[in-house]
């Protein structure tokens, strides 16, 4: 049993007079202790809503529906009442947000924001809490922590603020850490520092890390396994190397082909994915990626492609996946074609 098991999570937002939005639609993944799992996708793919739902941070509104389960160490996080959830949040499960300036309270000194967590979950007060906070800030690489404790968020640089946020998140040595675009607002050299820090935390404390990002480069360096999201669904799941070497879903392949790489030359044309994220079908009408897909078949528009699980632990949601090198592509619509990755059970959500 994994530490966190998200099963068939779905989030819909309904507003009167408008079409219901399926922000997250049947997302399943699991994370083990000491493992880094990536959720990758572009804006609007549902990666942040997924994390907010798991953390219980989505605003309670009549139109918002959350379905499925997110079992953390035997407890379903989605079924908890507020009190129980507050006990777990910050202690066992913690989150790091993208923009440290808007997730820190601007009128409260850093020190108090860190000790608040310690007081709430570890019952530390006064000098003990202060000492622990100094230790934490020092641990995440903030110089002169004693002085920094008295400072306000605006007095810190972007990298420092993100470190302070990480210090708060790891204050209670959580077993699961969710990082939502933790380095997107930062410069590359600072990004490298923060990623190194997160890697260390995972290795030293065996924390499970869910890394939410749009940056395939960050994923390539950090994650053990990766879920690629498109329009609220996981379209491909694989371990790190297979995903980058032989992407099966056309969207994954398209993303990899469209990113300019530091080690490719001047003038090599990029292969963008045509259209934009706005050109999305709703899933029940077929594959949401079909309008932008270069491998589209008629079958793609008829019904939602089932999740295909291959024997090597990968899965993808495509009727005509990108063929593996050296394999004759199987004809779509003929699931019985004897090709090595087709003879596995096909499960359907």
């Amino acid at each position: 049993m994994a530490l966190l098991d998200v099963n068939d999570l779905s989030v819909t937002f309904a507003r009167r007079g408008q079409r219901t939005v399926h922000a997250v639609d049947g997302v399943s993944f699991s994370v083990d202790a000491g493992e880094v799992v990536g959720l990758v996708g572009e804006s609007g793919c549902g990666k942040s809503v997924t994390s907010m739902a798991i953390m219980g941070l989505l605003p309670r509104r009549p139109g918002t529906r959350i379905g499925g389960t997110a079992v953390f160490d035997g407890t379903d996080l989605l079924g908890l009442d507020d009190r129980a959830r507050r006990d777990i949040r910050g202690r066992d499960v913690a989150m790091i947000f993208q923009d440290p300036l808007s997730s820190l309270n601007p009128v409260i000194p850093i020190g108090l924001q860190v000790t608040e967590v310690l007081a709430r979950h570890r019952g530390m007060t006064g000098d003990t809490a202060r000492k622990e906070a100094v230790g934490l800030l020092d641990r995440v690489g903030i110089p002169d922590p004693n002085r920094r404790l008295k400072e306000y968020p605006h007095q810190l640089s972007g990298g420092m603020r993100q470190r302070a946020l990480i210090a708060m998140a790891v204050a209670c040595r959580p077993r699961l850490l969710i990082a939502d675009e933790p380095t997107t607002a930062l410069d590359v050299t600072i990004q490298a520092q923060i990623l190194e820090l997160l890697k260390e935390l995972v290795q030293e404390s065996g924390t499970a890390l869910v890394m939410i990002t749009h940056d395939l480069g960050v994923v390539a360096g950090m994650c053990d396994s990766i879920n690629v999201l498109y329009a609220g669904r996981v379209v491909e799941t694989a371990r790190r190397r297979p995903l980058f070497r032989t992407p099966r879903h056309p969207y994954t392949a398209g993303l990899l082909g469209s990113v300019p790489r530091l080690d490719s030359g001047r003038g090599e044309p990029l292969n963008p994915i045509p259209g934009s994220v706005r050109d999305v079908l709703s899933w029940p009408e077929g594959c949401a990626f079909a309008p932008r897909c270069s491998r589209r078949l008629d079958a793609c528009l008829d019904e939602t492609p089932p999740l295909v699980r291959t024997h090597d632990g990968r899965s993808y949601r495509c009727v005509d996946p990108v063929p593996l090198p050296g394999v004759v592509p199987a004809q779509a619509g003929q699931p019985g074609t004897p090709s090595p990755e087709r003879n596995e059970e096909e499960t359907r959500d």
Partner: peptide, 9 residues
Amino acid sequence: AVPVPDPDV
């Protein structure tokens, strides 16, 4: 410091 989308690299 720039991440490259290639695990081998």
